[in-house]
């Protein structure tokens, strides 16, 4: 009967691994909350979130510029990438000849595997000089090139493969019959895509967008290499910004030597995490709603 015993032991171990990995997310949240407590005890939440004065040595921790920086680069990235990604994925799923698809799909997968430091490096080599020498002067600004716009562009490129891969698959999963109905009524292909395929694919496209958003929101290395890292609320896209992720990555070295600094940095990690959690759960709920309506 040692088969039975093996089965019993193995299933318990597997259950243990499963419970462990499903509770990890809670462990991360609790761990960060625990470490953020000291700063939350001495500073009010409104001060932390809305004040712009960041002077750790004086014990002043105003996250406002960093939060704004994060929001801006993310919004810019999504603005740039969404139209391009949607058009590309519709093209690949609905229009592109099989050969082109077979050529582009692996390229997109490859793009997804490129490490963020390489994107950052490319940003420094190409995007930053381009903004400094051409884009900013064109709009009448003088800039170093290390700015919000550079961060937004690099992030947009980083989320291309994620959004395209997911939404292309979503478009292809739309049943053929639905399209035929529309085409049979005399609709053009584009009308069919616009009115039928896009609507049927909407939940999946939302999921793709949320994935892309999470990636952009939490990206650290690439964005911190090109965004300038100045702790001030930017007034134009040609000014530098300082996202939360960059704040953590740039200052970990000193965080144990300044009082409350570690707590402040871990609080920014917590903020990032909570926003991501909020969006992924909200997206789930929206998806369930939409799916129920479509069915």
């Amino acid at each position: 009967m040692d088969r039975k015993l093996k089965e019993a032991i193995a299933s318990k171990l597997m259950l243990l691994a499963t419970v462990f990995s499903s509770l990890l997310i809670f462990a991360v949240v609790i761990g960060l909350i625990q470490k953020s407590r000291p700063i939350l005890a001495t500073h009010s939440l409104s001060e932390l979130l809305l004040s712009s004065s960041w002077f750790p040595l004086r014990g002043e921790f105003g996250f406002y510029p960093f939060i704004i920086g994060t929001i801006w680069v993310t919004v810019l990235a999504m603005l740039f990438s969404l139209p391009l990604c949607l058009l590309t994925s519709i093209y690949l799923a609905e229009y592109a000849p099989a050969k082109i698809r077979a050529f582009i799909k692996p390229l997109i997968d490859l793009l997804a595997g490129i490490p963020s430091v390489v994107y950052g490096l490319w940003g420094i080599l190409i995007v930053v000089p381009l903004i400094k020498d051409y884009v900013a002067p064109f709009f009448g600004y003088s800039a170093t090139g290390y700015c919000l716009l550079a961060g937004g562009i690099v992030l947009a490129i980083m989320v291309f493969p994620i959004i395209i891969a997911v939404s292309e698959e979503v478009f292809r999963a739309v049943p053929h019959e639905i399209r035929e109905v529309s085409l049979a009524l005399g609709a053009t292909k584009w009308q069919t895509v616009k009115h039928v395929a896009l609507r049927a694919a909407l939940p999946g496209v939302i999921a793709a967008i949320v994935l892309g958003f999470s990636r952009a929101f939490g990206e650290t290395m690439a964005v911190m290499m090109v965004v300038g890292n100045v702790a001030r609320v930017p007034s134009s896209v040609f000014e530098p910004a300082y996202p939360l992720t960059a704040l953590i990555a740039n200052n970990y070295g000193e965080m144990m030597s300044v009082p409350l600094y570690d707590s402040a940095l871990l609080l920014s990690a917590l903020i990032l995490l909570l926003v991501i959690l909020f969006f992924s759960i909200a997206a789930r709920i929206v998806l369930l709603r939409i799916e129920r309506r479509v069915m």
Binding site: L211, A249, A269, L272, I276, S280, R284
Partner: peptide
């Protein structure tokens, strides 16, 4: 489904947050 949901959420957590959590550990 619960496990899948929590793994999907973990998938979206930024790597800097894992760095911070690893640091706490």
């Amino acid at each position: 489904n619960f496990v899948r949901l929590s793994l999907d959420i973990l998938w979206g957590v930024p790597s800097i947050v894992y760095g911070a959590f690893g640091f706490i550990i």
